[in-house]
Write a protein that binds this DNA or RNA. Structure first.
Lengths: 249, 249
DNA sequence: CCCAAGCCTTGACATAGATCAACCCATGAC
DNA sequence: GTCATGGGTTGATCTATGTCAAGGCTTGGG
């Protein structure tokens, strides 16, 4: 776990630690180690590995430390729909339920910080702060899910692709601050297939629309996965979203 | 508000009252009247009326007492997607946010029980029980949203219609217990247009698929809105859902 | 009684995206 | 070097659903 311990310096609000890692922090470790010793542990997964399968027992809740995980549902005939995309600091698992309703899959190499479910639930009872934080996060996820429903139900393939690129670019930028002058660059953490599962499209359509955005200069690609967005606002206009989105706080 | 007071006899777990009405109960009124006097009030709406508009200030949270409300998002060019369907006992509003992100519309005549937001938030701080209940409800909504995403992203028009009918029939049955032998009957509380906004279809497609299910005997209609499902399981098979859905508890 | 407004249905036609298929390019095993 | 594999692209075709348009039924107002 060297990748994690190397981050112990990060300044960090300890109270948030059990349910939202920005990083794992030294102070928090010291403060809570006693009670957490038996509760908290780390697990690593390789890209493509399942963390749990839909229907399986899931005796832990967890938050993503590094990497990206997805939640997906599968229909009997194999049609799949992604229903959650977990970036670092995001939370999975549902207090008060013992089985996962979804496949949880590592989209990239992945490190998760897990908490055994029962002790975590007890901790929630003793520490209302944690429940409140969890409620806040769940409400955020619900909002994200509702945006996603608009995308799935009403957007064109091109709008879907543009939206996804903007979502990832935005999250990536806020995590890693990689812009240089107006230009945004990042590695797509998803295969074309994973993108198609996110967007409710086939992977061929994803590929075609990516090509089309590339031909029109809205994105530039280096290799298959590295994306450059020369002008974020132009791409935003292709999403069909209200331009002044963030007026809600 | 006679419709409400007439239900005061209903047995009811008081602790749940502030955030989930099964009915408004006398004991609860007595217990909490003092603190609630300034907090709690009722509002009625006619079918079609907006409760709030997306972006508007929303200084209350509320639960549905009778009738049905919808949450919808609209794109600049007018495309609309429903993202929430609120049946009696469901909750709207988000502690910690002052503006509604969605249009809230009365789909039928509607009575809501509202709580002023600030006092409600204070009450949440004093009463952890309420926060826990709200977390539970929010997690349920998130699960519902994720089912809905699968529907929007991957189901055919026919599967979408069958799913919607099953969802409403089930909720309606659990609320009102109206089955007689295997047969289920209920009034569709949604226009074809509202159904199309729910399902991410056009109203013409909704109409055609309803006709097709009718011709095949999977549903029977009396007038435009009254639906009879002669065999719920046959209809369920048209939804594409896993037959043994409810194994999670 | 007539008329307008909502809501719904049905038909004819257009099209976005799915499907099927071929092929390219890296990578890693042997 | 060869081969198999996984990921990605592109073309040709098909089809489910959208679009446009007409008309029916019910309700309520004048």
């Amino acid at each position: 776990m060297t990748r994690i311990t190397s981050k112990f310096q990060t300044t960090h609000d300890c109270a948030d630690c059990p349910i939202r890692h920005r990083a794992v922090c030294a102070r928090c470790e010291a403060d809570e180690l006693a009670q957490l010793e038996q509760i908290k542990y780390y697990r690593s997964f390789e890209a493509g590995q399942n963390v749990v399968w839909a229907g399986d027992q899931m005796d832990f809740v967890a938050s993503v430390v590094t990497g990206i995980a997805t939640l997906s549902q599968t229909m009997e005939d194999g049609r799949r729909q992604m229903v959650g995309l977990l970036l670092p600091s995001d939370f999975v698992g549902r207090p008060g339920r013992n089985n996962s309703a979804y496949d949880v899959v590592a989209a990239t190499d992945l490190v998760m910080c897990c908490f055994r479910k029962n002790p975590f639930e007890n901790m929630m009872l003793r520490t209302p702060h944690i429940g409140q934080r969890l409620l806040e996060m769940t409400l955020d996820e619900l909002d994200a899910a509702r945006e996603w429903m608009l995308l799935l139900g009403r957007k064109t393939a091109r709008e879907k692709i543009a939206s996804l690129l903007c979502i990832i670019a935005r999250r990536d930028a806020s995590l890693q601050l990689r812009q240089s002058d107006g230009e945004l660059r990042f590695d797509l953490p998803l295969t074309r297939e994973a993108m198609s599962e996110y967007l409710g499209l086939t992977l061929e359509t994803v590929s075609r629309q990516m090509s089309s955005l590339r031909k029109e200069g809205l994105i530039i690609t280096e290799g298959k996965r590295h994306i450059i967005i020369p002008d974020f606002d132009s791409l935003l206009e292709e999403t069909g979203d209200d331009s002044d989105g963030g007026f809600l706080v």
